[in-house]
Design a protein around this nucleic acid. Sequence first.
DNA 1: TCATCCATCCAAAGCGCTTTCAATTCTTTC
DNA 2: GAAAGAATTGAAAGCGCTTTGGATGGATGA
Lengths: 343, 343
Amino acid sequence: MNLKDLSALLGLSQTTVSRALNGYPEVSEATRQRVAAAAEKYSYRPNTRAKSLATGRSMAIGHVIPISAQHEMVNPVFGDFIAGAGEAYAAAGYDMVLSLVQDSHEERVYRDMFAKGNVDGIVVHAPEMHDPRIALLQDIGLPFAVHGRASDVPTPYNWLDVNNKSAFQRATGFLLDLGHKRIGLLNGLETMDFAHRRRAGYVEALQTRGIAVDKALMRSEEMTENYGYQAVCEMMKLPDPPTAYLVSSMIPAIGIRRAIHDAGLKMGQDISVITHDDDLSYLRNGDDVPLFTATRSSVREAGRQLARILIDQISNPGKVPQTKLFEAELTVGRSTGPNVGAR
Amino acid sequence: MNLKDLSALLGLSQTTVSRALNGYPEVSEATRQRVAAAAEKYSYRPNTRAKSLATGRSMAIGHVIPISAQHEMVNPVFGDFIAGAGEAYAAAGYDMVLSLVQDSHEERVYRDMFAKGNVDGIVVHAPEMHDPRIALLQDIGLPFAVHGRASDVPTPYNWLDVNNKSAFQRATGFLLDLGHKRIGLLNGLETMDFAHRRRAGYVEALQTRGIAVDKALMRSEEMTENYGYQAVCEMMKLPDPPTAYLVSSMIPAIGIRRAIHDAGLKMGQDISVITHDDDLSYLRNGDDVPLFTATRSSVREAGRQLARILIDQISNPGKVPQTKLFEAELTVGRSTGPNVGAR
DNA sequence: TCATCCATCCAAAGCGCTTTCAATTCTTTC
DNA sequence: GAAAGAATTGAAAGCGCTTTGGATGGATGA
């Protein structure tokens, strides 16, 4: 059933039927009803491609997902993010198209998406510190929104980020208050902008208290469970091992817990751990009392809101870019306690 | 830069340029070179929507992702699956469009996808035991492939599944061989087809050895970390608690490990655990010696191969549906050992 | 009564591509 | 050297929709 058939059936022109269905004013209420009823009856759905071609808008938003070269992995956070974004898209009638790319620098994917015209806008994932993709997208004039930020971009653009620096600063401060002086940092890859900011927060908190930053206590890798395990196993062998750890995600935090248990120690008593918690649906941080003390910020909510920002930008092309900074909440769980050795 | 511009630039007709770029034989090699060079130079990309409209093929494949009503969660396995599928799509020039749907029964999403014509085929995720979606898709005549199977569909269709029954049968047998008689089953939701098959394998293995099936030892829920933790905490309070557990995914297995540790016991010594392992990139089951004894099958590889099956079906509409059954490998790790109480 | 306006509808062009059918030129073949 | 065939190109229709620029007729006002 296409527009031609439907209008023939109704004895109306395609023009009128199209207008009736799209809510244009120059059609009488009576015929609008009649058209709507017929469309419903024959379950008419306008062909997206034809519509796109005619309007010049594709009603689709592209997500370019970088695949890590090292582990060939997709960020586990990703599922929840697009679940949130998907809600916003569905509400606004947008489709979501995914492109998984090995090398996130690959500018061709972006250029192609634009030239082929199959998206109206793009969500940029996992921005790096000096991310060339932002300048590129500004250059080609395709609306976009970034999940996170890139540090060195002078011109404004749409982004939504967690205040990573303040979150890790507070978390570090919390551990220092508990008497910990040797705090391990298991960061994400520091080419990533968020990881860089987190380290800045950690370092600043230490320096404020006059505690020297020890490079031996800082790691930066992709956030797998094994990473957490291995890194802590190794750090525990140091002459003056950490009594606390700050880690960038629940997944490696689980590895840390494993390492602590394997060493015959108790998390929250012998060794403290604070993790960042993206509030993943399949990895809830405990029900009543959180298992981990954590800096929490829902990545699903981030997806939802960033999608809205992008849709807004697409609908109002002239509008000044929006930015949104989530403050993570520091929730105290059972993985932290006073530094026993310090007493 | 569109076809009109490009052909004007070359002093050729749109027809010839189109043919040259799409590899039709009726164009001289000389002009083909010339066209290709110009297309490259001006980085011409044909407009997807116009192409789709003209050819009737959208070069996109839809994934309808069910969102669990209970936890509002996206299956954590999903990221790896589409990473695999994405590879195959990219190689064949297909886009991937995602639709996240609250109620997986919602037939309208499928009908709409077909009517709106924005996909050439669909991947069905998380099939239930008697899944109406398959008959629906057969009915509307949209090519599709199922990740998993539905039990009660008489007509053939494309699917790719792990041999869940044999995997869990062997795993149960393995535990029985170690002297375990009380084996807890932490299954996925048994409305899901895969969960049903796994239970069948578990039950059959017990019955073969003449061991009574105890309903108190069987759970069926969505696979979160908390589920694993809670279920085991509760089962350990039973008068005659399990000495071993069989669990459907790494995520709840991690919860099980937590419960065992919290009880002051050692996994692999006091209590044995076998999990199914989807070989997720961020949750590798140990490096050298696997942490968990597991029935393993790569979900990423499943994505890759199922995508190929679907593309093949789309390219050869008349072809008889393909099916593929992966056998999971049983890898022995450190989470299993003989039943100490049985000696 | 006539001119004007408004409400309502339609024909046709156009979005950027593919593809059918026809035209033209260049080779063969006898 | 003419007829037939092959190679190469182009004009134009069509995919299913939106939207511009009328057309039509009834209501309104003087």
